[in-house]
Amino acid sequence: MRKVLAALVIMVMLAGCEKDTAGGGNSAGGEVKYPTKTVQLMVPAAPGGGWDLTGRTMQKAFTDGKLIDQSVEVYNVTGAAGTVGLAQLVSKNSGDPHHLMVMGLVMVGGVVANKSPVKLDQVTPIATLTAEQEVIVVPANSKYQTLKQLMDDAKANPASINWGGGSAGGTDQILVGLLAKAAGADPKAMKYVAYSGGGEAKAALLAGDLTAAVSGQSEFKDLVSSKKVRALAVSGGTGVDVGGGSPAKTIKEEGYEVELMNWRAIVAPPGIDKPTQDAITALIDKLHNSEQWKATLADQGWEDFYKSGDEAKAYFTSENQRITTVLTEIGLG
Rank of each mutant, 00 (worst) to 15 (best):
Ala127Glu: 12
Ala131Arg: 08
Ile68Asn: 00
Val12Leu: 15
Pro44Ala: 08
Leu105Tyr: 03
Ile280Val: 15
Met261Leu: 13
Asp69Asn: 11
Glu303Arg: 08
Thr38His: 04
Asn262Met: 00
Ser318Met: 04
Ala213Phe: 03
Gly170Trp: 02
Ala154Asn: 15
Leu14Thr: 10
Asp304Cys: 02
Met151Asp: 11
Tyr315Gly: 00
Asn76Gln: 12
Gly16Asp: 11
Asp186Asn: 15
Tyr34Ala: 05
Ala182Ile: 05
Pro35Phe: 13
Leu332Ala: 07
Ile284Trp: 12
Leu150Thr: 03
Thr324Asp: 06
Ala113Gly: 03
Ile330Gly: 08
Leu150Pro: 06
Leu86Val: 05
Glu257Thr: 07
Tyr34Gln: 07
Ala180Ser: 11
Met261Asn: 09
Glu257Arg: 06
Gly197Lys: 05
Val193Tyr: 14
Asn93Thr: 05
Thr38Arg: 08
Lys313Trp: 01
Gln321His: 02
Leu100His: 13
Lys307His: 11
Gln173Glu: 15
Gly255Ala: 06
Ser91Tyr: 09
Thr281His: 07
Met58His: 01
Thr36Val: 11
Ala282Asn: 14
Ala182Arg: 03
Ile136Lys: 09
Gly50Lys: 00
Gln59Lys: 10
Asp152Lys: 15
Asn26Arg: 12
Asp299Trp: 00
Ala204Lys: 15
Gln300Ser: 06
Leu297Thr: 10
Lys3Ser: 10
Leu86Trp: 08
Asp152Thr: 15
Leu67Ala: 00
Lys286Asp: 07
Trp263Leu: 07
Asp273His: 08
Glu311Met: 05
Gln59His: 01
Gly109Asp: 09
Thr317Tyr: 04
Val39Arg: 05
Glu31Arg: 10
Asn114Gln: 11
Pro125Ser: 15
Leu53Ala: 12
Ala87Met: 06
Leu14Lys: 02
Lys37Ile: 09
Arg230Lys: 12
Val32Leu: 05
Pro117Asn: 08
Lys188Arg: 13
Lys202His: 10
Ile280Tyr: 13
Lys313Met: 03
Glu18Thr: 06
Gly170Pro: 03
Ile284His: 03
Gly23Tyr: 03
Trp302Gln: 08
Ser235Met: 06
Val138His: 02
Lys252Ser: 07
Gly55Leu: 11
Ala46Ile: 01
Thr238Gly: 01
Ser116Gly: 01
Val4Tyr: 09
Asp209Cys: 04
Tyr34Lys: 09
Ala182Phe: 02
Gly197His: 04
Tyr34His: 08
Gly301Leu: 11
Ser167Phe: 02
Ala185Pro: 14
Ala204Tyr: 10
Phe62Leu: 11
Lys227Thr: 04
Gly197Phe: 04
Trp263Met: 04
Thr211Glu: 12
